[in-house]
């Protein structure tokens, strides 16, 4: 560290202390930064939770206290009692799961085909998916309404699922295509020499290899579908068939909030499944993104 020292041993000692100090300081700073980052990400959510267990009378008090004086789960009870929250949750779960599974299945097949065979039409399709992928959903919503009307699928969960699949597929294909490209061709060639057909090779050899990528794609598709608001709010209108985001939006209007406490409870309940789902599958996620997904 310091160049002009007279005694080499002393300087070595000194610099060791100095080095340790710097090292410790650096570590402490890193820990502080890490805690700050975590707080930055979670504080608003903690506030949502705190607000959700605060009784209405305290929420609307002149001097609101930071922590609720009489914490209660009353808001949650109200949420499930007077709205169709449970039903919306079920609808969202069905829709998101169906969309995710179908998108993974179809995009895995398409991505595999596109990564293994070079035909002109695939190139055309590849470019088309890119286009579809970039399309702002707001462009699609009015024409989609009329297409679904024509198919007798307005106000139907099947219709909404089809729309979700159609608009999520490009992302799925885009993510998985490069993933499949990363899997060496020799693997299936070897399997096919042993007499299996190409399709068998695909689902027995290649799919297991691509599992992390498919799970990452699945998490992604599931979470964006679970969160989706625009399509759900316009293509579905029955209170019994709507999804969480669109359902909750009916009592979060521009003019009027029924009760902040109940809304906050709804916020917690919408986010929770996603957070749990994610905690459960987290290790696949990072591996999947890293292992080639989303590259070029």
């Amino acid at each position: 560290m310091s160049k002009n020292t007279t005694s080499p041993t002393l300087s070595a000692q000194k610099s060791a202390v100095y080095y340790r100090l710097i090292r410790n300081l650096r570590r402490v700073t890193l820990y502080v930064l890490m805690i700050l980052a975590v707080l930055w990400a979670t504080l608003p959510l903690i506030w949502v939770f705190i607000s959700s267990i605060r009784p209405d009378a305290e929420t609307y008090a002149f001097h609101q206290t930071f922590f609720p004086q009489h914490p209660t789960f009353e808001n949650y009870a109200t949420l499930f009692r007077v709205t169709r929250f449970g039903l919306w949750m079920r609808n969202s779960a069905i829709l998101s799961t169906a969309t995710t599974l179908i998108v993974i299945a179809l995009s895995a097949m398409a991505a595999y085909a596109m990564s293994r065979f070079r035909y002109r039409i695939f190139e055309v399709f590849g470019r088309m998916t890119l286009l579809a992928y970039m399309m702002p959903p707001i462009i699609l919503v009015v024409p989609l309404f009329f297409i679904l009307f024509k198919l007798h699928l307005t106000n139907s969960m099947i219709g909404l699922t089809l729309v979700y699949i159609g608009t999520r597929l490009p992302v799925g294909i885009w993510m998985l295509r490069s993933y499949f490209q990363g899997i060496p061709k020799e693997l299936e060639d070897a399997a096919m020499v042993d007499g299996t057909t190409r399709f068998q090779a695909f689902y027995k050899v290649i799919l297991p290899q691509a599992m992390p990528g498919m799970i990452a794609t699945g998490i992604f598709v599931f979470s964006v579908t679970w969160q989706e608001f625009l399509f759900a709010s316009i293509l579905i209108f029955s209170a019994t068939r709507t999804t969480l985001s669109a359902g909750v939006a009916t009592f979060l209007s521009e003019d009027w909030i029924y009760s902040w406490g109940v809304l906050m409870a709804a916020g917690v309940m919408i986010s929770l499944p996603l957070v749990l789902f994610y905690i459960f599958l987290q290790r696949y996620l990072i591996a999947g993104w890293g292992g080639g997904g989303l590259k070029g």
């Binding site: 286009l131 579809a132 462009i139 699609l140 297409i147 089809l162 729309v163 159609g166 490009p170």
Partner: peptide
């Protein structure tokens, strides 16, 4: 199947 769905629910409305 993927082409079909993308065509009907993304390209056609676009």
């Amino acid at each position: 199947p993927a082409i079909l769905l993308v065509l009907v629910f993304a390209m056609l409305p676009m």
